[in-house]
Design a protein around this nucleic acid. Structure first.
Lengths: 197, 197
DNA sequence: GTCTATAATTCGATAGAC
DNA sequence: GTCTATCGAATTATAGAC
């Protein structure tokens, strides 16, 4: 009963508390303003513990910014509902977990965070788009356009907090932004105004 | 001829040099990382001069973040070319002047900068949209949606630097993003998937 | 008007007691 | 494993000489 397996290791709880506090602080304040001292205070531990467990502020951020978009397999989504599905997914995902907003805030000033953001969208999003039926030759470009609208939505809704964007509910967002994403994914290529090639 | 009116006052040149350097530093590094020392070094003056002229770092930023989108009168733009016109205008505007990118970077972590960003888009953009022929009752919402795509484009192209977005030239941007802006401005309201009301 | 010197904070990181 | 104490560096801001 008192063996090492039954006694929950304090360090695990401490590590988890630090990570949770770090995500909140990084999301709320960005990389620079989020201090190790403040994160430690939120987690009710000593600042030196953060250093002990994560080595440095960079290391803590790297651990806190692990992020899986949990994108659905777009090959199994009805082709005419790709935009709506993706829009609703993103809104749900980042309202349930502030990590992506933290990453977005940090990416504005921290090169490492910007690099990680590029990695997420090049890896996870571009990969998902490639499975949506898009021509592989254009998939990366389409993913970039999708990112421009999706991240712009996150920026205006959660960071800058533009009132008209904050006020939209998920259904309205899907109705307005969904068709944009749909067009970026399915519009014949190239979409030049002179139409032809 | 040698009166005070003909002799260019040194202080004016110094103030202008400080402001120019501040815009570049704020754009490149964001509010926190852009230091008064670095700005002063860029302007080849002493850091204390910055304090003398602008009072504080906040005051300097406030002066450097004055920004006029120079939006055209949308009442004079052919209604079917609103999206393309606006998209090209924004790309041209912020590639000629890094102030908006500076403001965007700063807004990610600095509440004052976010407030200013809201002011610009509520004031200048919403006002322009209201003159585009949009129903006044929906103009603010349409402006918010336009902002979400336009700022997302700036974010992915100039801050995060997603390669596929960076690689698009102005013509391609107008062809891809223009229709999005056009739809946000002219799509009948509401755009629900269930179409009718 | 311009610069030197420095005050007053605050931060990340380290050393070491317990 | 956890905390106290503190270092060294960097920052904004101020005081005052010239």
């Amino acid at each position: 009963m008192t063996g090492p397996a039954t006694r929950t290791r304090r360090s695990d709880a401490t590590r988890a508390a630090i990570l949770r506090a770090a995500r909140e602080r990084f999301a709320a304040d960005g990389y620079d303003r989020a201090t190790i001292r403040a994160i430690a205070a939120d987690a009710h531990i000593d600042p030196s513990m953060v250093m002990r467990y994560y080595g440095s502020k960079e290391g803590l951020f790297a651990a806190a910014a692990e992020f899986d978009l949990h994108l659905p397999d777009l090959a199994e989504v009805p082709p005419d509902r790709l935009g709506e599905t993706l829009t609703r997914h993103f809104v749900r995902r980042w309202e349930a977990d502030g990590t992506l907003v933290a990453l977005l805030r940090a990416a504005a000033t921290n090169p490492g965070a910007a690099d990680r953001m590029r990695g997420i969208f090049a890896g996870q999003l571009a990969t998902a788009v490639a499975r949506s039926g898009a021509d592989p030759a254009t998939a990366e470009r389409r993913a970039g356009l999708v990112a421009s609208q999706i991240l712009g939505l996150a920026l205006t809704r959660y960071v800058v907090r533009l009132p008209p964007v904050v006020d939209l509910d998920p259904d309205e967002l899907a109705a307005w932004v969904g068709p944009t994403i749909q067009r970026y994914l399915t519009q014949p290529f190239p979409p030049s105004r002179a139409s032809g090639r």
